[in-house]
Amino acid sequence: METYYHPKDLARFAEIGDSVPELWHKFLAWYNAVFEDGALSEREKALIALAVAHTVQCPYCIDAYSVSCLEKGADIEQMTEALHVAAAIRGGATLVHGVQMRDHVHKLSM
């Protein structure tokens, strides 16, 4: 079936480096450094990445960071809590914009 997303395309990510390789290598070096143990552990960073992957709704990222979270020691409870954090921020962001809506309503209404 024709679809814009193919699971096997995740393994082809490096093909992006075939064009403008110097930028790809800079991206890759930075990307890898971001996920190294630091003030946050690799597991904690993978959980953040998983949550962000859902908010940007990237199926490749969801695939990659579901695996990464498990390999770095997270369990499904931690992963699900990370999703709720992302979902709460998305929900909260929607609701907090209601203040703007209310301002418009109050300004325009008698």
């Binding site: 143990d37 552990s41 690799e42 597991r43 695996v67 498990l70 390999e71 770095k72």
Partner: peptide
């Protein structure tokens, strides 16, 4: 690993454990 996964970074996991 508990599943079809590769092990994580040993040093990082050891600190967390």
């Amino acid at each position: 690993p508990v599943g079809a996964l590769l092990p994580g970074n040993q040093a990082s996991l050891e600190r967390e454990w």
